[in-house]
Amino acid sequence: MQKILVCLKRVVDYNVRVRVKPDGTGVVTDGVKMSVNPFDEIALEEALRIKERGAANEVIVMSIGSAEAQQQLRTGLAMGADRAILVETDEAVEPLSAARAMLATIEREQPGMVILGKQAIDDDNSQTGQMLAALWGRPQATFASEVVLDGETATVTREVDAGLETIAVDLPAVITVDLRMNEPRYVKLPDIMKAKRKPLETVSFSDLNVENEHHLTTTHFAPPAQREKGVMVEDVGALIQALKDKGLV
């Protein structure tokens, strides 16, 4: 395989406790730590391991978003990706439009495999990889925990509700990764320095001949309903009594 394309989304760091703005127009993102979507780091780690095993020659990272997403692409380059592509836009991007921009990039780059996260932890959509595979007319192996390559096919283990499912897909294919696929490497300082010299190309939706369509409008943000604080019990006897009172045991 010549190339693997990995999609990295810039998202609010998973350790941040996200808060809704009091006026309901969005969530607070000013001054909040931003990171590579955790699933996408795993996607990149997998691509790098495939390359290190000699099964691919180049790993390209791409992101769609504001100019600030360059930071996340630089993180990807520091982890070991060879070059980066930013599809720059200040507008929101729905998964269908993201998938179309990815498809346009695939047509230019002709990767043998595209690896994404199974979901972005901001919008929790879990759509983009599946949409990309549909538009591309290629296989999808979603929620993957293991990928075994054998020539022109990949055998992928998927984490599904019933347990583990294994499918075989012909390449090129789209893979979306789950948490247990691997443990992403830490970036070291020299790698960060080296990453600064790696190529990062910026393009726009119009360069790709893709329209950033919006089909959905988010009209209101609200905090979730709070559960009321309950009672503390002293011992096992009191716990059982409390459960009995509620008719639960």
Partner: peptide, 19 residues
């Protein structure tokens, strides 16, 4: 469920609509 999450976005994209 994992079944629907895997399937429905593929349907949406083939129809050219959002999910």
């Amino acid at each position: 469920t994992t079944f629907g999450k895997d399937l429905m976005p593929r349907v949406a994209a083939l129809l050219g609509v959002a999910q």
